[in-house]
């Protein structure tokens, strides 16, 4: 090969590598949304779970494996909620994949103490895993993702740092707006189907009094349903929040008997119309709670 041709191909391959997008696969749409904001034009991001799907239960499909096979980075929720990610990652056979646990720098809530077992329901040993529903944790997730992208694609480190700064700045602006908007829901007492909301409740001053499930992951029972109806009447609770992947049957029964309103609350991006990214997700949740009050 002539020296000129060799230099041409070297420059061409360097340019091609510099322009190649980092392929990122995430467990959920929330992580995908934040990754898109941090990665910008330098990343291609897809999520395994749909926004309307229960992140605890995702089927392990070969199509997910080949998607991860082509990825450079896998962003998982961690804290035992997306255990299904392990067989997908193993099935991908991708030896160069960088797997990032986005919960690594989170201060978890509701970490169980002492021995835990299945008699307590589907208890997560590392704490409640729905941590992305606190905007402050969103900033931590964004930093974790920026670090991961910088690690695999140092050529665009400056872009990732700038996007992270922009994300945090936008988040602060949104937080100010959400705080103002959430005055309408501050201090309200609600019942939710699953224990998905402790981080959101702490961030926005909502009090979650009880759950439609008698224990995490356990289907409603008649005796517990009767208890929840009584609790709603006694405490004058106005709202029953239901994640989009749970049946409305028992919540509607409770609402009929107690006078409370059933509100579908999307815990994830794309879980409801209008919740198309991480910021608008909080708008939708707050707006739905405020409207139901």
């Amino acid at each position: 090969m002539k020296p000129f041709t060799a230099i041409f191909w070297l420059l061409f391959s360097l340019a091609a590598n510099a322009n190649a997008k980092v392929n990122v696969v995430t467990s959920t749409t929330d992580l995908a949304s934040i990754a898109r904001m941090i990665g910008g034009d330098n990343v291609d991001v897809t999520s395994i779970a749909r926004g309307t799907a229960d992140p605890h239960f995702v089927e392990v499909l070969p199509s997910y494996m080949v998607r991860v096979q082509k990825a450079k980075v896998y962003l998982k929720l961690g804290m035992d909620i997306d255990r299904w990610a392990a067989p997908i990652i193993d099935g991908s056979r991708n030896g160069k994949l960088v797997v990032v646990d986005c919960s690594q720098n989170i201060a978890p809530l509701e970490v169980p103490t002492g021995k835990i077992d299945a008699s307590m329901g589907d208890v997560h040993p590392h704490g409640n895993p729905h941590y992305w529903l606190d905007p402050d944790n969103g900033a931590i997730i964004a930093s974790t993702i920026a670090d991961a992208l910088t690690g695999v694609d140092p050529a665009h480190a400056a872009a990732y740092a700038a996007n992270l700064a922009s994300f945090k700045s936008q988040l602060e602006t949104h937080k100010a707006a959400w705080q103002q908007k959430s005055e309408a829901i501050r201090g309200i007492k609600i019942v939710t189907y699953h224990n998905s909301w402790p981080y959101f409740a702490r961030a926005f001053g909502v009090e979650v009094e009880d759950f439609v499930e008698p224990l995490p992951g356990i289907e409603p029972t008649p005796s517990h349903t009767a208890h929840v109806i009584e609790l709603i009447k006694t405490h004058q609770i106005q709202i029953i929040g239901v994640e989009p992947y749970f049946s409305m049957r028992t919540p509607e029964t409770i609402a009929r008997e107690s006078g409370a309103k059933v509100v579908q609350l999307p815990p994830s991006v794309d879980g409801a119309p209008g919740a198309q990214d991480y910021f608008s997700l909080f708008d939708v949740i707050i707006d739905r709670l405020a409207a139901a009050r």
Partner: peptide, 10 residues
Amino acid sequence: GMGPHKVHAF
């Protein structure tokens, strides 16, 4: 079933 038996693939 007891324990962390892995989910089965498709």
